[in-house]
Computed example of a mutant assay.
Amino acid sequence: MNEQINKPQVPPPNYLVFAILATLFCGKIFGIVAIVFAAQVNSHWNAGNYEAAKSASRNAKIWAWVSFAAGLAWIILFAMLSVFGVLAGIMQGAFN
């Protein structure tokens, strides 16, 4: 009975959709880590381990953002290399 009083009302967000989208479109490895943590949130919550659910939620969010940042970094790096490649071609006279 005492446990019912201390139980928080709302489970923490699991960020599963964000983790899946980050995996598909950004960093694969970091996104998989985010999916694993996101999948743990509800199971910890249903088991009554509320602190572990909060921790898994926090970790899922962090790793999803890391995956997003890694994907963004790759896009920026690819764009920069493409621009430098075009500029190098122009300087060499490859487009004449």
Rank of each mutant, 00 (worst) to 15 (best):
N2S: 14
N2A: 14
E3K: 07
Q4C: 03
N6K: 12
K7M: 08
P8F: 02
Q9Y: 08
Q9I: 13
P11H: 09
P13D: 08
N14A: 06
Y15R: 06
L16Q: 13
L16V: 10
F18V: 06
F18D: 15
A19M: 11
I20Y: 09
L21K: 14
T23I: 05
L24G: 10
L24S: 11
L24D: 09
F25K: 08
C26V: 00
G27F: 04
K28G: 10
F30D: 03
F30Q: 14
I32C: 08
V33P: 00
V33T: 15
I35E: 00
F37K: 05
A39G: 12
A39I: 04
V41H: 01
H44Y: 13
W45E: 07
N46M: 12
A52P: 00
A53I: 04
A53W: 02
K54V: 08
S55P: 02
A56Q: 10
S57K: 05
R58Y: 11
A60E: 05
K61S: 15
I62P: 00
W63D: 09
V66S: 06
G71S: 07
L72E: 00
A73E: 02
W74V: 12
I75C: 15
I75G: 13
I76S: 02
L77P: 00
M80W: 10
L81Q: 12
S82L: 13
G85F: 00
G85M: 01
G85H: 01
A88E: 13
G89N: 06
M91I: 12
M91A: 15
Q92S: 11
G93R: 01
F95M: 07
F95A: 01
N96K: 10
N96E: 13
N96S: 09
